[in-house]
C-alpha cells in the first residue's frame, strides 16, 4: 500500500520536474528568439519529420548496432581478462603496466590510430571503441574478483563443485554488481566515444549526421537527434538493466 503510494508520488515528482525543464527551455527560447536555441515545439516538429522520412531511425539504428557489438565484445573480453587477472597475482603484476597505459591513452588517439592503421572501415571503428572501453571493464571486474569471498570458494572446493558450478553459483553472483557497474559506466562511455568515431571516419550513424548539422548550424536537428538518443539509452536502462538488477537482488533482505 504505502510503497505503491510512494511510487506514484515519486512518478508525479518526476513528471513535474520534466515539465518544469521543458517550460524553462520554452520561455528561454522565446525570450532569445534566436536560431541557435529553437523552442521545444520546433525541435519536436523536426523530430517528427526526421522520423517520418526514416532518416533518424536509420542513423540511430546504425549507431545502436555499433554500440551493441562493441559493447558486447568489450564486456566479454573484459570479464574474462578481469577474472584471470584478479585470480592470478603474477599475471596481474605483469599486465598492470599495460592496463595503466591503455587506461590513459586519450580516446581520440586510439580512434585516429585505428583509422590510420586499418583504414576507414567498420571493423576499425568497432576496434577503436572496444580498445577505449576494455581497460575500464578489466579494472572493475578485477576489483570484483579480488573481493571474492574466500570462505565460499573454500566451501565450493571442499564439496567438489568443479569449475563450471563454482563459476555459476559462487563467483558470478558476487561479480554481478561489478558487471552491472561496468555496464552502466560502459554504456555512458561508449555512446559518447562512438559519435566521435562516426564523425571522424564513417558515412552514416548519429555522429556523421551531427557533423552534417553542425556544418549547417542546424541546432534544431542536433537537439532532435540528441533527445532520441537519450530516450533510447533511458529505455535500455528501464527495460534491460533495472529488471536485471531486481532479479539478481531478490535474495537480499
Amino acid at each position: 500500500m504505502t510503497s505503491t503510494k510512494l511510487l506514484s508520488h515519486h512518478r508525479t515528482l518526476n513528471l513535474l520536474s520534466l515539465l518544469l525543464f521543458i517550460g524553462l527551455w520554452q520561455s528561454l527560447a522565446l525570450y532569445l528568439s534566436d536560431n541557435s536555441l529553437p523552442t521545444p515545439t520546433t525541435v519536436a516538429k523536426v523530430f517528427w519529420q526526421e522520423t517520418l522520412s526514416g532518416q533518424l531511425p536509420y542513423h540511430l539504428g546504425i549507431t545502436l548496432l555499433r554500440l551493441v557489438s562493441s559493447f558486447t565484445i568489450a564486456m566479454l573480453l573484459g570479464c574474462a581478462i578481469g577474472i584471470v587477472l584478479g585470480r592470478s597475482k603474477k599475471l596481474d603484476a605483469f599486465f598492470d603496466n599495460w592496463l595503466v597505459i591503455f587506461l590513459n591513452i586519450p580516446a581520440l588517439v586510439t580512434i585516429i590510430l585505428c583509422y590510420v592503421w586499418f583504414g576507414l572501415v567498420e571493423s576499425a571503428a568497432i576496434l577503436a571503441v572496444v580498445i577505449n572501453k576494455l581497460p575500464n571493464v578489466v579494472v572493475t571486474i578485477r576489483e570484483g574478483t579480488r573481493a571474492l569471498d574466500k570462505d565460499l570458494l573454500e566451501m565450493a572446493r571442499c564439496y567438489h563443485f568443479g569449475k563450471r558450478k563454482t563459476l555459476i553459483h559462487v563467483i558470478w553472483p558476487q561479480l554481478h554488481p561489478f558487471v552491472m557497474g561496468a555496464t552502466r559506466s560502459g554504456l555512458a562511455l561508449i555512446w559518447k566515444i562512438i559519435l566521435v568515431v562516426e564523425l571522424l571516419g564513417r558515412s552514416n550513424g548519429m555522429g556523421y549526421q551531427l557533423h552534417l548539422f553542425f556544418q549547417l548550424f542546424d541546432v534544431a536537428s542536433i537537439l532532435a537527434y540528441t533527445i532520441a538518443f537519450v530516450a533510447v539509452i533511458q529505455l535500455i536502462e528501464l527495460v534491460v538493466l533495472k529488471p536485471l538488477d531486481r532479479r539478481a537482488g531478490r535474495w537480499r533482505r
Binding site: D151, L152, E154, M155, C158, Y159, H169, P173, W251, R252
Partner: peptide, 15 residues
C-alpha cells in the same frame, strides 16, 4: 567424500 561443517555457516546467500 568429505562433509565439512565450518565454524561459520558459509551458505551461498543468493541460493
Amino acid at each position: 567424500k568429505i562433509g565439512y561443517v565450518f565454524q561459520n555457516p558459509r551458505l551461498l546467500p543468493w541460493r
